[in-house]
Computed example of a mutant assay.
Amino acid sequence: MAAIQLDLLKVSEWGIFSDTKKPLIIAGPCSAESEQQLFETARALKSNGVNVLRAGIWKPRTRPNCFEGVGADGLGWMRRVQRELGMKTSTEVANVKHVYEALKAGVDLLWIGARTTANPFAMQEIADALKGTDIPVLVKNPVNPDVELWIGALERLNMAGLKKIGVIHRGFSTYTKAKYRNIPQWQIPIEIKRRHKDILMICDPSHISGKREYIQEVSQQAMDLGFDGLIVESHICPEIALSDAAQQVTPSSLSEILSHLVIRNVETEDVEYKENIDELRARIDELDNELLQILSDRMKVSAEIGKYKKQNNITILQPGRWDKILEKVFQKGKQNGLSEEFLEKVFKAIHQASIDRQTEIMNE
């Protein structure tokens, strides 16, 4: 299928962010729990320079009998924040009813959660409900690392006429034990940016981290990769939050986190930097050419092995041989400062390509 180029407006034309310098900050509680809780959090955030409030009104929970949000009543509390504090407001919508309620209440920005992004039927219904509006919409990545599913959600909104579209990277679910609640897999949002270089890209360090103590480091990783901003869960008293208590920070803690962020430049006019970086990139290009030739030679040898296996009726997979390869690679890699995690990913891909080629030969 031919790639679709998204027709998007620049962030400066969105009319929601008063300051389009990086990083853009959207912050507020995971859930609006009471009018007092929401307003006090918003007021504290406003005093710390945050101008866009986020709050969950409807909370899709994994299991029933959990706090699932206050519903439409919370939209009235958000209107008060708009009126009295002059802040913009944003919330998550998961179905057409949510869209209509949020639009009716004058919410300034919508975002679509990971579970909804993963459902093309739900995305199409939301896109249809938003036709004729120009409200900004941010789309979280689907639960699983599926680039095409994520891009498909963006395309549905764009084809419905929406041009103020951005993405939120909140990491991906994993069944394995990991440091973070959702593993970042930064290469996925990087691929989105490669295809659509002008799209607004926001990081959600709260959902990636799962714990407030990791929010600083995840936020810095996002800044190092050139993300445009952050959407952070902030609660006036996180310890008693009704949802995601462990990953929320107080407004003052958020201010402290933001004050320590190092913001990188995309480019520089420094002549010495440009000369040095061009020289290093030229060397990278040379090494890439060498790698391609080596990989080509290796695949040719794998093909020859496949022919001998076929002639002698031997199975393609030889687990003992694969274990020995990895063991040797890890040992040599350690001597050269290469991590086992990196080497395993690279050589697994090479091994799988060799198996695929030998499978073709077996079935010729």
Rank of each mutant, 00 (worst) to 15 (best):
Q5M: 14
D7H: 10
K10M: 09
G15Q: 09
S18M: 07
S18G: 11
K21L: 08
K22S: 11
L24W: 02
P29T: 08
C30M: 08
E35M: 12
Q36F: 08
Q37I: 03
Q37S: 05
L45R: 07
K46S: 06
W58R: 03
E68D: 13
D73G: 00
L75D: 04
W77C: 06
W77Y: 07
V81C: 09
Q82E: 13
L85S: 07
K88W: 10
V93K: 00
A102C: 12
A102L: 05
L103K: 08
G106A: 01
G106P: 03
D108A: 10
G113K: 03
R115E: 08
T117Y: 04
A118Q: 03
N119M: 08
P120Y: 05
D128M: 11
D134P: 08
K140C: 02
W150A: 00
G152H: 07
N158W: 01
L162T: 01
I168G: 00
T174K: 02
Y175G: 15
T176C: 12
K179H: 15
I183F: 10
W186A: 13
W186C: 13
K193H: 11
H196A: 00
K197H: 10
C203K: 03
S206G: 05
S209A: 14
G210R: 04
Q216G: 03
V218S: 01
S219W: 05
Q220M: 04
Q220G: 04
Q220W: 00
Q221P: 06
Q221S: 13
L225R: 13
L225P: 06
G226S: 11
G229M: 09
I231D: 06
H235Q: 02
A241F: 06
S243K: 12
S252N: 13
S255T: 01
E256R: 14
L261S: 06
E267P: 00
T268F: 04
T268H: 04
E269C: 02
D270F: 04
V271G: 00
E272Q: 10
E272N: 08
K274R: 12
N276I: 07
N276P: 00
L280T: 13
R283T: 15
D285K: 13
E286I: 11
I294N: 07
S296C: 07
D297Y: 05
R298K: 07
M299A: 09
A303D: 08
A303W: 03
G306N: 01
K307N: 05
Q311I: 08
N312D: 11
I314F: 14
W322N: 00
W322T: 04
D323Q: 10
D323H: 00
L326S: 01
E327K: 10
V329H: 01
F330D: 01
Q331H: 07
G333K: 10
Q335I: 02
G337D: 04
G337T: 06
S339Q: 08
S339V: 05
S339Y: 02
S339L: 03
F342E: 04
K348R: 15
I350L: 13
Q352Y: 14
M362Y: 03
